[in-house]
Computed example of a mutant assay.
Amino acid sequence: MRPTEIAISSYRSVRRLSMPIEPLSVFVGENGVGKSNLYKSLSLLRDAAAGRITRTIAEEGGLNSVCWSGLRKRGEDGRLRLSAEFDRLRYSIEIGFPAPSEAAFAGEPMIKSESIEATQGKRTVRLMERKNSLVSVRDDSGAWTSHRDAVLPSETALAGFPSARECPEIVLIRNAMLGWRFYHDFRTDPASQLRKPCLAVTTPSLSADGSDLAAALATLYAIRDDTVDLQDAIQDAFPGAELRAWEEGGLCEFDLQLQDMPRPFKAHELSDGTLKYICLLAVFMGYRLPPFIALNEPETSLHPSLLAPLARLIAKASSRADIWIVTHSEQLMEALRSESSVPLRRVIKSKGATTIEGLTLGGEFREEESEDDEC
């Protein structure tokens, strides 16, 4: 299942936002407008599927730090609300502070509600509903079955409900979101795992931290046994260069032969920008791409000459996976528009809240005006 829409309410600088997910979604904006908060809110949905969303919020400073940072209207509860839609299914979660009677640490993030709804024709049917620790599911006959204390207040029903077989949609949505992959940055310092050999284990998709980079590249050589596209991409970014990856003694390694250099350079010898670009090659050219890939400012540390080749990589990969990118690089945005005709999505702040130009209250983007219309 692919995500078709997300909704965010009361997350940091995002007061209320609903937007469609397109095969290639690219958002550009200046520093401080809240681009990263869009990325992080998606990551929180994946954490809900993994059962660690409350821990992630605690690690980020707790609800006081994570919830809407602006002024609230009278009566607003300030709860964090997230939802994701998958074709006919919609998952929603609401997180707030514990009630005085709840067995919880003071200030601990608590799951207040969760739900799964299905669209059947023109009807919307609720299939799972969770209120605090009470989980109720609807069976095939339409009858509800309730499970008291089925999950702890800090656990998601999506990950921890022991009777998920009673509601197969729980498993469908959980597995769909667990397949999402997020890439925020890659460590390229001398001690980085990217610069070291890694275990020779078949690696169809690069891990979030890139620590299995050599194995992901070697998988293309050893398993697919076809690296024409990979070498073409290397040539596009580094004319005259050749990338090699191999397995030896239970470990995978790689090197890069640059044009006019007497010998190839191994990972520990490559510049930060070159190593970062090879990581992005592995992200977008893996043996099997994750169904949904989100990247936060992938242009960081790259020379401007690499942005056009990166745009071509992204555009080509968008036929194999849904890709979601936030960037502050106008040059990358223009290159992506040239390669894929992706519409411009500009992130701005309006009255202190993060929003997107052209996004309607109904969660749809207005059609862009042509240049003739603008004149």
Rank of each mutant, 00 (worst) to 15 (best):
R2S: 09
I6F: 12
S9T: 14
R12K: 15
E22F: 12
E22P: 11
S25I: 08
G29T: 04
K35P: 01
Y39S: 14
Y39F: 15
S43T: 05
L45A: 13
R46P: 01
A49M: 00
A50R: 08
R52C: 09
I53R: 08
I53A: 15
T54R: 07
A58T: 09
E60L: 15
E60S: 07
N64F: 01
V66G: 06
W68D: 06
L71C: 04
R72A: 10
K73S: 13
K73H: 10
R81T: 09
A84R: 02
R88I: 05
S92G: 07
G96V: 10
G96H: 05
G96E: 08
P98K: 06
A104N: 06
E114M: 07
E114Q: 06
S115L: 05
E117F: 11
Q120L: 05
R123I: 07
R126H: 07
R130V: 13
S136R: 15
V137G: 02
R138I: 07
D139P: 03
D139G: 09
S141K: 15
T145F: 05
T145N: 11
H147M: 05
D149P: 00
T156M: 08
F161E: 05
F161G: 02
E166C: 10
C167M: 15
E169N: 09
I170Q: 04
I173V: 14
W180Q: 00
W180I: 14
W180E: 00
W180N: 00
Y183I: 12
Y183G: 12
D185L: 06
T188R: 15
D189N: 14
P190H: 07
A191N: 14
A191V: 00
S192R: 07
K196R: 15
P197Q: 06
A200K: 06
T202Y: 08
T203A: 03
S205P: 02
S207P: 05
L213S: 02
L213Q: 03
L220W: 08
D226L: 04
Q235K: 13
P239C: 10
G240Q: 14
G240V: 04
R244H: 13
E247A: 11
E247M: 07
L251I: 08
L251Q: 11
C252K: 03
F254H: 07
F254I: 00
F254G: 03
D255Q: 10
A267I: 01
A267V: 03
S271M: 11
D272N: 13
T274Q: 11
L275K: 00
Y277C: 04
A282G: 10
A282W: 01
G286A: 10
Y287M: 05
R288M: 03
L289Q: 11
F292W: 05
L295T: 04
E297I: 00
S301G: 01
S305I: 13
L310S: 05
A311C: 04
A317K: 02
S319P: 03
I323C: 03
H328D: 04
H328A: 02
S329H: 05
E330H: 11
L332C: 02
L332V: 01
M333I: 08
A335E: 08
R337C: 09
S338C: 12
S340R: 14
V342S: 03
L344Q: 10
L344C: 05
R345I: 06
V347E: 02
V347Y: 04
K349V: 09
K351V: 09
K351G: 13
A353V: 09
A353K: 04
T354R: 03
T354F: 02
I356M: 13
G358D: 10
G362V: 00
E369D: 09
S370P: 00
D373H: 14
